[in-house]
Computed example of a mutant assay.
Amino acid sequence: MIKGSIVAIVTPMTPAGEVDFDALAALVEWHVAEGTDAIVAVGTTGESATLSVDEHIAVVRKVVEVVAKRVPVLAGTGANSTAEAIELTRLAKDAGADAALIVTPYYNKPPQEGLYRHFKAIAEAVAMPIVMYNVPGRTGCDMLPATVARLAQLPNIVGIKEAKGELSRVRELLALGLPKDFALYTGDDATARESMLLGFHGDISVTANVAPKLMHEMCVAAIAGDAATAGMIDSRLTLLHKNLFLDPNPIPAKWALEAMGRIRGGIRLPLVPMNPDHVNLVRDSLRAAGAL
């Protein structure tokens, strides 16, 4: 089981909007050096919605190549079409990903039985570990704990990223009596510390993009039940947890990484550069975390 700080890494782009593979490689090396415990390539934060299939798999392949087995690599392979999700998952496995992170289908709002059959079909079609991803604020679809419990019985469905952002949902999942090797990850940085102190195994994080070392150290402390240390570290990250979402993710994270000199300012429509009114707030957040 993967534990700790799992960065949902941005996909660096040139000002013209082309994928910047050199910057991506440098980011991956930085994360490994800073202690990031695993990397998600081409998740929501990686702008998966606007990458072509060829670009999507090329990014996964590049991350796998640069990581060189030093940390696990998860590939985002979700889609609102089950057949498309199966194909992306197959391609990610062929590219060398260690696991797939698969978001619930978006826009078409499947019922719980549809969610169950969707993930079951993918799990049966592709023999690789699958981490489900629930983020109703983006998808318009909420996978309920009872459905998670059903899917957790399938052998290669190994975990869930729960990003509803409510500790009540964290407690519901912990109370299900899921298999001991079923991983529970939060996808909400603002409640990550509390989630791990309650019993979650890690955080698939946006904040880790700009403060990887602190996020790793906070996760280690929280998973170990060291509330005092986790709280002390998290206090330096609180503004980032909030202000990296002043504009839709990953707009502020990409601005921050550009300000840190780690990427160029490319982002794809319909996303646009960060609102100028938010610049000082995000800059102050970086300084509070020691990232600037």
Rank of each mutant, 00 (worst) to 15 (best):
G4T: 02
S5L: 02
V7R: 02
V10H: 03
T11Y: 03
F21N: 03
A23F: 08
A25P: 04
A26D: 14
V28Y: 03
W30K: 05
H31K: 11
V32E: 08
A33M: 12
V40W: 03
V42C: 14
G43T: 06
T44G: 12
T45S: 08
G46L: 09
T50D: 07
T50G: 06
L51T: 03
L51M: 11
S52K: 13
D54N: 12
A58L: 11
A58K: 13
K69P: 03
V71C: 10
N80M: 14
S81D: 14
T82H: 06
I86R: 02
L88K: 11
T89C: 15
T89P: 14
A92T: 06
D94G: 08
D94K: 15
D98I: 13
D98T: 11
A99W: 01
A100F: 11
A100S: 15
T104N: 09
Y106N: 02
Y107W: 13
P110W: 12
Q112I: 12
E113W: 12
G114K: 07
L115V: 04
Y116A: 07
H118T: 04
H118M: 11
E124D: 15
A127V: 06
M128N: 11
I130Y: 02
M132P: 02
Y133C: 00
N134I: 01
V135F: 12
G140H: 06
G140V: 03
P155S: 12
P155E: 09
I157F: 08
G159Y: 12
I160W: 00
E162G: 05
K164Q: 13
K164T: 13
G165H: 10
S168I: 13
S168K: 12
V170H: 01
V170W: 01
L176A: 04
G177M: 06
L178V: 05
P179S: 14
L184R: 05
G187C: 05
D188I: 01
R193W: 00
D203C: 15
T207I: 07
N209Y: 00
V210D: 00
A211H: 06
A211Y: 05
M215K: 04
E217R: 10
E217K: 08
M218Q: 02
I223M: 06
A224N: 00
A224S: 05
A228L: 11
I233G: 01
D234R: 01
R236C: 04
L237G: 05
L239K: 12
L240D: 00
L240V: 04
H241R: 14
N243W: 02
D247M: 05
A253P: 06
W255T: 05
W255H: 08
L257P: 04
M260Q: 14
G266Y: 05
I267F: 10
L269R: 15
V272E: 07
V279A: 10
R283P: 01
L292A: 15
